[in-house]
Design a protein around this nucleic acid. Structure first.
Lengths: 219, 219
DNA sequence: GCAAAAGTTATGACGGAGGTAAAGTTAGAA
DNA sequence: TTCTAACTTTACCTCCGTCATAACTTTTGC
């Protein structure tokens, strides 16, 4: 899922114009990704991307208002992931258990949203201060969405300190493990190897938090 | 303490140049703060600040490489605060107890580093995406420094998942309460009132985490 | 005590991101 | 076919952050 809500529509509108729009957008995104991977995010200018895609500079910034939007996709899926895991938890399951299960299955599936993004993509992000800052913002939004979900699940106000603290703790564990995957990816480890390491470490990390939140927000 | 380590020296070096340097730096900082408060961070250009301080544009960016540096001072104190609290904990005291004590005393003292920065300053930060992103980065650095301190305190590697997770949890609580102070400041509450609210909420927030980390890194 | 050298500071000029306005072009409707 | 609305393009602008250059203060050699 992309940033724009328009992509949630089923491309039902009369095809030709919409189709060309999609193509143009995808073309720009592809060329941008290629250039970012090849020469880094900061070293790539919007003008270069526009030239590579054979469009005007303004067309690029029209589809992607900020340069970071060209690199970080699936933002909405990332931001809402934890909140959705809590909302979809099984009866009798606590938020803690649901989020631990979500992380372990994401690790087992080597889900890009959990941090399995490949060495080039990972290097692109950590080498760019702009993208790193953007990623921090996404983690923040994710925690905020989780706090709202926890407030709803426990029948408390979203301004209350308890759901906000719980969200911070739970999202914090996810964030630590996310960055652990990034670190291991940069160290040259393969996906399967990382998944094996992470399964053990995630279990330990959640075990540390378990005494505090094992029963919080039980459905 | 400022960003530059040069300010740690006692201004012993031959006076004239150093003195003028200090004066110029302070003058720029003062004019910048005035303008930021009056018309907001994003709406203030470096050229305006330079004009107000009667110096060249480049002189401003020479002292303050990035625009954010003009607004956010005391960065080092903020970043190292939690790690220092752990390093200076009393014998028999756990990291959890030391950090709870540090927060409660900072709240009682209405310490700016804890978030008591006044309504204008607070509004300046939250209304500026740039400054908000910068603040997120500082929180991140603070957590990282805490992780290193906890690894040292427990005799584990800084790459280990346990100190990193513990740092995330403890710094997370501090971050939630920091933003709570910001929210209450923006809502128009006074410092004493906020301190009273925060004392109760901080106690609750730490109580939530206590079962997990009460004995972690006991000195 | 003086002059040259060395390091530091301020200055003007430049590249890139992001935004606005107006004109040209193309898809879809009457 | 013709008109309307949208998307793309062009040109221009502001502003941040960096590069090479000029001016100054302190230090060093004589």
């Amino acid at each position: 899922m992309d940033i724009e809500s328009s992509t949630t529509t089923d491309s039902a509108a009369t095809g030709l114009r919409e189709a060309k729009k999609r193509e143009t957008r995808q073309l720009i995104s592809d060329r941008a990704t290629e250039l970012f991977m090849a020469q880094g995010f900061e070293r790539t200018t919007i003008a270069e991307i526009a030239d590579a895609a054979r469009v005007a500079k303004k067309t690029v910034t029209n589809y992607f208002p900020r340069k970071e939007d060209l690199a970080l996709d699936h933002q909405d899926e990332f931001v809402t992931g934890l909140a959705r895991a809590v909302a979809a938890r099984e009866p009798g399951e606590s938020a803690f258990v649901a989020l631990r299960r979500a992380l372990l299955s994401a690790v087992a599936a080597q889900d890009p949203v959990a941090g399995f993004a490949g060495p080039e993509f990972t290097r692109m992000i950590v080498e760019s201060p702009t993208l790193s800052a953007c990623l921090r913002g996404l983690h923040d939004q994710r925690e905020e969405a989780l706090a709202i979900a926890l407030a709803a699940a426990t029948g408390t106000s979203a301004a209350d300190i308890t759901p906000r603290t719980a969200a911070s703790l739970l999202a914090g564990v996810h964030r630590v493990l996310f960055h652990r995957i990034l670190d291991l990816t940069l160290a040259g480890h393969g996906g399967k190897e990382i998944a094996a390491i992470l399964e053990a470490e995630a279990t330990r990390a959640f075990a540390l938090l378990e005494p505090a939140l094992a029963d919080y927000a039980r459905a």
